[in-house]
C-alpha cells in the first residue's frame, strides 16, 4: 500500500512531463519523479522499529536499517541537483534566444 502511494507521486511527475507545454513545468515534473524514486528506494530498506546504521555500544546490529540503499540514494541526490542546474541553465539560454518558455514555439533549427 505504501509503495502504491509512492507510485502515485511518480505518475504525477510523469503526467507533468508529458502534458505540460511550459519548459520549466517539465523540469519540475522531472524533479518530482526523482523524489518519488529516492523515497521508494529508502522505503525498501526500512525495518520495523529500526535504528540508524551507526555502530554504538548499546545498539544491536540486528535492528539496523539497510545501509546500502541509503548510500546509493545519497549519490543519486547529489547527482540530481547537478542535473537540475544543467537543465535550468539550458532553460535560461533558450529563453534568452526565443523569449519564451513555450515548447511549441521553440522549433527553429538555426543555432
Amino acid at each position: 500500500m505504501i509503495f502504491f502511494l509512492c507510485f502515485v507521486i511518480f505518475l504525477i511527475g510523469l503526467y507533468c512531463v508529458i502534458v505540460k507545454k511550459n519548459i520549466l513545468k517539465i523540469v519540475i515534473g522531472i524533479a518530482i519523479m526523482e523524489y518519488a524514486v529516492n523515497l521508494f528506494l529508502i522505503l525498501l530498506g526500512y525495518r520495523w522499529e529500526g535504528v540508524p546504521a551507526i555502530v554504538t555500544e548499546t545498539v544491536t546490529q540486528a535492528k539496523f536499517v539497510d545501509p546500502l540503499p541509503q548510500a546509493l540514494v545519497l549519490t543519486a541526490i547529489v547527482i540530481s541537483i547537478a542535473t537540475l542546474a544543467l537543465m535550468v541553465s539550458l532553460c535560461i539560454r533558450i529563453h534568452q534566444r526565443y523569449k519564451t518558455f513555450d515548447i511549441t514555439k521553440i522549433r527553429r533549427l538555426k543555432g
Binding site: 502534458v19 513545468k25 534568452q96 518558455f101
Partner: peptide, 17 residues
Amino acid sequence: ILIRAVATGKEVSDIKG
C-alpha cells in the same frame, strides 16, 4: 536555482496547448 530560472521570464502564466 529554480527561482533564478523563474525570474528570467516576464510571462509567468500557464501555457495552454
